[in-house]
Design a protein around this nucleic acid. Structure first.
Lengths: 335, 335
DNA sequence: AGCTAATATGAAAGCGCTTACATCATTCCG
DNA sequence: CGGAATGATGTAAGCGCTTTCATATTAGCT
């Protein structure tokens, strides 16, 4: 592969001049510029990104660390970040923590070894303290998605999860339901706790007693949702609606409900959370709290563009408001 | 951030020695090694990946180019590649072409600018010729997923799409169906054509006439599937089964079938293709041809490990055989 | 002891680029 | 017309690492 040196030779100029035309920096006469560009084309020259970063002490790369790479949430997230960054001429480099604290740390180390200019994190295994520590190190600016950490709130982009839970349950109440079950996410996840809080808040708001027997903890996966649903039936406390802390669990629950010969929403109404792409493929189409993951990813990218690359005219929205997407799985309470 | 120089000073050795202990290359006495490791720890030293690649002329990075980053297929693909590579100490760098030939080319350029040691491609917009050209350039070895290109077949990892289509339709035939509709993918995609070929083959095999009116072209998306399904009904040619060239279109078709008051599989049997994660969330659970995307991604990673990094004891499987996953959406033909 | 062959270490030349600084023409103006 | 801006280009010193080659030390043998 051709180097800058060969280009300079072919164009009959110095290295510095070639560098100048590449970077549009300094003054170069039109004639020289053309000659250089011509030489580049002729040699099919591509600058070596590594050498460039090394010399310039700036990589134009931003590191994206996610806990998983598959799954509906992360695909959309990663895709939107990549798009926004790419349009600004920056490169996204991904690492994936496989939901494990050690691997997430390792991923971050790797990215910092790549000398990324900034870090976008969507991790759950790492503690607030650790993130704060990273945040306080000025070497690599970072923005955290789906976290709300005191001390770095301007660098957090998150969803009002509590409100989301509240909105879901409130919708059920508005439909006349009074006995509303809740399938929660794993309680060691902050967002799961917040979503449940929202549920409780809505209940309180409507002066409905919170019955612990109507809440069961799931795992954010289909199987956990199914298990939770069975548990709910086994407890023998009547209910006419169930709100799930995410769509996967709703899918599992749906299956169990149907297998008991009950109709959705005729006998039991169901609401999910996240509004993943396939929520509308379910039958009946799943009513769900929208998690505007693409917008949030885009916002994270903008945060970096603004705070690291000095882009102007970008306003940052740290907190997003979830909205309920009405479909067919939630209906009026049976009389 | 500490550099190798500071480490060498703290440890009281030369740069070369530090480099040797980092890379486990050459002979270093136990005492020196310990001292260096100690110094590294003390300084929290992380080698600069850029500098290292530049000097070593090897980046330990492999570039992954996919047409999309979201979607069930790509999430799984990218995730499995990343995992396999990471375990071997290599880094995956992604670029995303947004299904556009120009952007896909650009992505490849970017990756080659990053001096990746190899390229794994899952693209559809780029022509065979272009890929062949890349393949013939020894600078960056490459392996193509989901392609079957004469002249570089050892560097192609693909699914026997024809067989997949055949298996699906054959299953319908075995269930007693004789009038089988087919919702195809976009005909300018090779895999879509192959899947359709398989369908025809199965029909022929069972001496069933191929009726053009029972085939309609979709777009691999839900809406296209729905549209195609409506078209099929409108054509007024009776059928008792429909096989779809992918699951998304099957989801769309399912919806339309149901909206006509027909039962699946009571009135109409349905089979999808790809067996995406949410295929089993559909109701009824979708019978689908499995696309072993994770295995194929892993294989691509291994190809690189073997052919580029010289890993031994890895056998490469270029062609994968699809298998039908039986669920609930296909049943015996109504009498 | 005398010599060879490991073994352990350091010096220094790059890898391909950026960028401060120096240099040389021009141009402009009082 | 002299000197200060201004513009166009080149020189060279790194960026943080790897790697060859040379050198120094030690062990192993006769």
């Amino acid at each position: 592969m051709a180097t800058i040196y060969e280009v300079s030779k072919l164009a009959g100029v110095s290295l510095a001049t070639v560098s100048r035309v590449m970077n549009n920096t300094g003054n170069v006469s039109e004639a020289t510029r053309t000659a250089v560009l011509q030489a580049m084309k002729e040699l099919n020259y591509r600058p070596n990104a590594m050498a460039r970063s090394l010399a310039a002490n700036r990589s134009d790369c931003v590191g994206i660390m996610v806990s998983e790479l598959h799954g509906p949430i992360f695909g959309a997230l990663v895709s939107s970040i990549e798009k926004e960054l790419r349009e600004a001429g920056k490169i996204a480099i991904f690492a994936c923590g496989h939901s494990d604290a050690a691997k997430e740390k390792e991923g971050i180390q790797f990215l910092s070894g790549m000398k990324v200019d900034a870090l976008i994190l969507h991790v759950e295994a790492l503690s607030d303290e650790y993130l704060l520590e990273l945040h306080d190190d000025p070497a690599t600016p970072l923005v955290a998605l789906n976290r709300d950490i005191r001390g770095m709130q301007t660098a957090c982009i998150n969803l009002d999860n509590t409100l989301g839970g509240q909105v879901a349950t409130r919708a059920m109440i508005d439909l006349g339901h009074r006995s509303i079950a809740y399938i929660a996410g794993p309680m060691d996840w902050q967002d799961a706790r917040e979503r449940l809080d929202g549920h409780r808040k809505a209940l309180l708001e409507a002066s409905i007693d919170v019955d612990g027997r109507l809440v069961v903890e799931g795992d954010y996966h289909e199987q956990g949702g199914a298990r939770a649903m069975r548990e709910l039936f086994d407890r023998d406390v009547p209910f006419t609606a169930v709100v799930c802390a995410n769509d996967e669990m709703a899918a599992g629950a749906m299956d169990v409900i149907r297998s008991r010969g009950l109709e959705i929403p005729g006998d039991i109404s169901l609401i999910g959370y996240d509004n993943v792409r396939w929520a509308r493929y379910l039958y009946p189409k799943l009513t769900s709290v929208n998690y505007p993951i693409r917008e949030m990813g885009q916002m994270a990218a903008r945060w970096v563009l603004k705070n690291v690359y000095g882009a102007r005219d970008l306003t940052i929205q740290n907190r997003f408001t979830p909205q309920l997407v009405y479909r067919d799985s939630a209906g009026v309470a049976p009389v």
